[in-house]
Design a protein around this nucleic acid. Structure first.
Lengths: 142, 142
DNA sequence: GCAAGGTCGTTAGCTACGCTAAACATGAGG
DNA sequence: CCTCATGTTTAGCGTAGCTAACGACCTTGC
């Protein structure tokens, strides 16, 4: 398969991903959190406490952007900001009990749109996406 | 496979898609156009002239958002706004010669990041994405 | 005909969420 | 100490989505 097909494929993927992200952004549940805030919270849940810079790197975002996200999460008592034990420049962000509660409570409801779409697929199609997800994930982190 | 795996899958897909869209937005080429403007232009190229409302629907966007996108494209003479022949409320948007030129000229350069990533994949992985793309595309349009 | 109400596009104003540049605070080394 | 590097925040900007409201225009019912 020559490069021509790859170009068409990348174009299709690009447009689909952009539209799907818009779609997902609109399909958020009734929590007060945006998808980005939820994503940061989930990252803290999965990886444990992180410095602001590490969290920003995980979310592929510049530190100033993460500061604002964290500000909002702290406002809602979903995370805690504590000074780093040895390096007082750093700030350690950790998910709070309230945050964990919201996350587990929300995991049942969020992704409703995607989960619903998944159920509409054939098993073969689901398998395709199961294979594709790690590739997209790798790209998103690269 | 029970619903639990589907939930994990939808969660992984959601986060990947959101991060990838951020990534793609940052990796735009040196054209003066954003990815959304390019997407709208490509839609006009593929589907021919559309009313603003139709174009907005195609792009899964509300009409006011599309008005602004189209304003910008018209500023650059990439599209034309003409009154609808019979219904003077509507506006017909069509890609211009300049727009087609920019599109074909740009198709070679854009998607560089994704195309580059595609080349890094094994043939099997490319096939996975080739299968996955239509599914994502269907979702994005649904 | 013509007034009432619906549709299409635009304008105005809001929010979310990225970014860079620069300020501030702290740590490390000469 | 003084300087320079590093981590976070502040300030300001840009893009792109949304809803609400408005004007222009069609359609319909009287």
């Amino acid at each position: 398969m020559p490069a021509k097909n790859d170009l068409a494929l990348s174009s299709a993927l690009r447009i689909s991903v952009m539209r799907l992200s818009r779609r997902l952004r609109a399909e958020r549940s009734d929590t007060p959190l945006t998808l980005n805030q939820l994503s940061a919270l989930a990252t803290l849940d999965r990886h444990g406490a992180l410095s602001l810079g590490e969290l920003a790197a995980h979310e592929r975002v510049q530190p100033p952007s993460m500061t604002r996200t964290v500000d909002c999460l702290q406002e809602l008592d979903l995370i805690t900001r504590t000074p780093h034990p040895t390096d007082r420049r750093q700030v350690v962000i950790a998910i709070s009990e309230t945050g964990i509660g919201l996350l587990t409570e929300d995991r049942r409801r969020r992704d409703a749109w995607l989960a619903c779409r998944l159920r509409e697929l054939s098993p073969a199609e689901r398998d395709v996406l199961r294979d594709a997800a790690p590739i997209l994930e790798r790209w998103a982190q690269a």
